[in-house]
């Protein structure tokens, strides 16, 4: 190995390699490193809650179907965006989002504040055939979500992996993940009671897909869509307070 580095020609190659890496990596380091030490980047809000297992399953379906390719979840600090979609997005709102789903393209509208805007029934009908409720829509149909039963047997693994990357799920939450996922979509069963106990009274516990007999992928996705922008009130509080930065006008 010594000989390898000592030969002149090799030394030249190695120095080129080192130079490229040194020159290229500095930009990434300077820009990204501070974001990991900053406390101001992500605001402290006490009421921020994690996704329930059912919502997390819905989020995974949102990722699986590539919804992020056409819908953003990031309202910029521009006047027209705030008026169209609601208070602009705060960093804290996606602090449990592994990975983030801010998106880069709005073929469809932004979804950061979609929660509670439409009824469950509207979402189900819209997902089965968007053009039934919005004739001009170009969104694909997602009928299979209503047909596929949700596989919630292994959700404990998902929560445990989320915990290992920093989401504060408790051991109790992980142990009860499957049960809670089932319970959140079946309010009349015993499994339902634990959900609000563990995730807060404000958690939506109901039949999301209109079919109480089965827990489907539709249940999970609608549960997720209905919580978008509802994990904390911080954005609404900030937009109401006087010292908030004003959105950039036109």
């Amino acid at each position: 190995m010594r000989e390898f580095f000592h030969r002149k020609l090799e030394r030249k190659t190695i120095s080129l390699v080192v130079a490229i890496v040194a020159v290229a990596s500095i930009g990434g380091f300077v820009e990204i490193a501070p974001l990991f030490t900053i406390h101001k980047t992500v605001e402290e809000v006490p009421d921020m809650r994690t996704y329930t297992p059912l919502e997390l399953a819905g989020r995974d379906i949102y990722i699986r179907e590539g919804c992020y390719a056409c819908h953003s979840q990031m309202i910029r600090t521009l006047r027209d965006e705030v008026e169209r979609y609601g208070p602009y997005s705060l960093a804290v709102e996606s602090k449990y989002d592994h990975p983030m789903l801010w998106g880069s393209k709005r073929t469809g509208p932004d979804l950061a504040r979609l929660g509670d805007k439409y009824s469950d029934a509207w979402h189900v009908a819209h997902l089965i055939n968007p053009r039934d409720v919005v004739p001009q829509s170009v969104m694909p149909k997602y009928g299979w979500l209503q047909r596929n039963e949700l596989d919630f047997s292994k959700l404990g693994l998902n929560l445990a992996a989320q915990r290992s990357v920093g989401v504060p799920y408790t051991q109790e939450m992980i142990d009860n993940a499957s049960k809670d996922a089932y319970g959140q979509a079946t309010p009349d069963t015993d499994a339902a009671s634990g959900v609000s106990e563990r995730y807060g009274e404000a958690t939506n516990v109901r039949v999301f897909d209109g079919d109480p007999a089965r827990v489907t992928e539709m249940d999970a996705l609608v549960a997720y869509l209905q919580i978008l922008g509802r994990l904390t009130d911080a954005a609404y509080k900030q937009s109401a307070s006087a010292d908030a930065p004003t959105p950039v006008g036109e």
Binding site: I32, L35, T41, S94, H98, W102, V165
Partner: peptide, 10 residues
């Protein structure tokens, strides 16, 4: 699941 979240991940 990605090691990074939110703004760092972005």
């Amino acid at each position: 699941y990605s090691l990074f979240s939110g703004v760092q991940d972005a």
